[in-house]
């Protein structure tokens, strides 16, 4: 361990967990209402971000307007996907539904490449790249205090992500639609029998997942550029979802932060092979959590009957 680097990497990792949590949130939203684990979340994110880029860079719209239009467009995309691809799968076995979202992911990835091409692009900067924040910590190294340097976009991405989680938690807690969605997640048939429109609830959750994905994608693209591999980032959000618990919205946040934090901490190691393990740390954590506590930290344990 390089102890003087630990605070820096720990905080950077924790903040990087913010966008991860936002992606995990998109997956949780869909799973909560419809028991579908959306493997295509990464491609939703990619398409939303590419569309934003196209609107603002190619078409010259102001960035704020472009983001709003892209968020609306991705909500519509979510609705279309739900109607055309997932609605026919209602009542099908789990494998078929998992494969449907995987196939959807392949289809959307191909479409993104066909429509926008595979070149690396610069996404417009939303947060100033100059003037990073400096935090002086009380820890001393060689009699000098350790200073943590944080890029602005890292901090603000984190803030936006936490805000997003807070807004959606509040939506589920206080609005009628949110309550209906929570009710539907308990039991689909029961919810229908008390007059909740299941189809509409599935649609809303897909639309929200699309919007969340686009916001997360924009946050990622503004700090690390935009190309087709953006969709792969979501692969490290899957462990975050399972870590937090599949049905839990606070769980998505906590899971994302834990994954970000531990990947960051590994970077402070002196041993090269451990530093390089940052990319598989989420999956090692995933294997551990699956064996110790499969339902995740905040998830519901299911009891099975024959």
């Amino acid at each position: 361990m390089n102890w003087q680097l630990v605070p820096q990497f720990a905080v950077t990792g924790l903040l990087a967990g913010g966008p991860l949590a936002l992606m995990a949130l998109g997956i949780v939203l869909i799973f909560k209402s419809s028991y579908i684990f959306n493997f295509a979340q990464g491609q939703l994110l990619l398409l939303g971000t590419l569309f934003t880029w196209w609107l603002t860079v190619e078409q010259g719209l102001p960035l704020g307007l472009a983001i709003v239009i892209a968020i609306i467009a991705s909500a519509i995309l979510g609705l279309v996907i739900e109607r055309l691809a997932l609605r026919p799968m209602t009542g099908q076995p789990l494998l078929a539904i998992i494969l449907m979202t995987l196939a959807l992911g392949q289809f959307l990835q191909g479409s993104a490449l066909l429509l926008f091409g595979g070149t690396q692009r610069n996404f417009p900067q939303i947060f100033s790249a100059a003037k990073p924040y400096k935090i002086v910590t009380p820890f001393l190294f060689n009699d000098k205090p350790i200073i943590i340097i944080l890029k602005q976009n890292l901090v603000w991405s984190f803030v936006v992500a936490v805000l997003g989680v807070a807004i959606i938690s509040a939506f589920f807690q206080f609005t009628k639609t949110g309550l209906a969605m929570r009710g539907a997640s308990e039991d689909h048939e029961l919810a229908q029998s008390i007059g909740l429109r299941i189809n509409r609830i599935f649609g809303i959750s897909w639309a929200m997942a699309g919007m969340v994905a686009t916001v997360g994608g924009i946050l990622l693209a503004t700090s690390s550029g935009l190309d087709l591999s953006l969709s792969l980032v979501v692969l490290s959000a899957f462990p975050a979802v399972l870590l937090g618990g599949l049905e839990s919205i606070p769980g998505a946040l906590v899971g994302g932060l834990i994954i970000g934090f531990s990947s960051g901490l590994v970077n402070a190691s002196k041993v090269q092979i451990i530093r390089k393990s940052a990319e598989i740390v989420p999956y090692v954590l995933l294997l551990i959590i699956l064996v110790i506590r499969p339902e995740g930290i905040f998830g519901q344990k299911r009891i099975e009957r024959v």
Partner: peptide, 13 residues
């Protein structure tokens, strides 16, 4: 590269 996942995904769906 675009058509391979696109057509495969479409066929599978």
């Amino acid at each position: 590269q675009a058509l391979r996942p696109l057509l495969f995904g479409l066929a599978l769906m």
